[in-house]
Design a protein around this nucleic acid. Structure first.
Lengths: 161, 161
DNA sequence: AAAGATTGACTTATCAATCTTG
DNA sequence: CAAGATTGATAAGTCAATCTTT
């Protein structure tokens, strides 16, 4: 498909300018394409979907050696019930375990099993290589910093300009 | 949550540098947050999920007045079956219709109904305003161009660096 | 009563298989 | 047989309701 390079910046039929549309539409396209690729890569190489990997990553990086369900859910951008089900799947595979919270009887604490840690460590290296090959490699160090600044800008405020 | 601004750029426990992680992680976070907000906005204001809106948008912008299923699927980053089901839902709401292709007996052609066009036109204005309020307004014109360039860079190549 | 977590019912997407036409 | 589209079975997520603990 040949990209249209004709007009500089007229309001498109969309109601967004070409620049606006390329920024917003580009975000949707990039995310969709990239996440599908990385997910497929990770499943092919280690039988581990991206969502599962991210849970293992959070647990691996946790100083406690584990995290509460609500923390996991927030950090993975999942609903509480969504995280409950994801954790149940991972527990079924023997990769993590759930314990009660010491200090809070309501809480549930997820920790990696040795099998989970091993699986994570195997997956991590190749996964980061995939992220580089499919995404990071297209940009210079400065550009990555710039992009990080862009993405961080929205979460800095509560969501208002 | 206070952002950590301590160290400049050490390799994180992740295996990605801080810069790399902020670019990649920021993409995931931005997309998740933004799409959820826009979807909820659009449903609240017009009873129309984002995915449905995008189908109506593509049909509205089509010179033919309609598009083939396979075209719709590709442009919306959906599988063929996913698009079949989305179109079925929209047809059930009377917003679009399916016809046979004139030139190709296998093809299925989707066109908007008058009701669909009206619904689309009502939704469009407020939706683009939401996109501006929640995303575009955080950036200057130059920055949006820069971002569009970043996002476009991956699709330009086949996926290799 | 509010917070943390889970469960039931449901939505939306996918893959593999199938049907029809080229 | 290949391409376009749809269907059946299934996967993974959401919301609303529920249960337990604070």
């Amino acid at each position: 498909m040949a990209t249209d390079t004709s007009s500089p910046r007229p309001p498109l039929p969309d109601g967004l300018t070409q620049t606006e549309f390329q920024a917003f539409g580009g975000l949707l396209r990039l995310h969709s394409t990239l996440v599908k690729q990385l997910d497929a890569d990770l499943i092919a190489a280690h039988g581990l979907p991206l969502s599962s990997f991210e849970v293992l990553l959070m647990l691996a990086n946790s100083p406690q050696g584990g995290l509460r369900m609500s923390d996991l859910a927030q950090r993975a951008f999942l609903s509480p019930s969504g995280m409950t089900r994801l954790v149940q799947r991972l527990a079924g595979q023997g990769l993590i375990e759930q314990r009660a919270c010491d200090d809070d009887g309501r809480g549930s604490f997820a920790v990696m099993t040795p099998a989970g840690r091993e699986r994570f460590e195997q997956a991590a290296t190749t996964h980061y290589q995939h992220i580089r090959d499919r995404f990071l490699c297209f940009f210079s160090e400065d550009e990555l910093r710039q992009m990080g600044d862009f993405f961080g800008r929205l979460s800095a405020t509560g969501g208002d300009c």
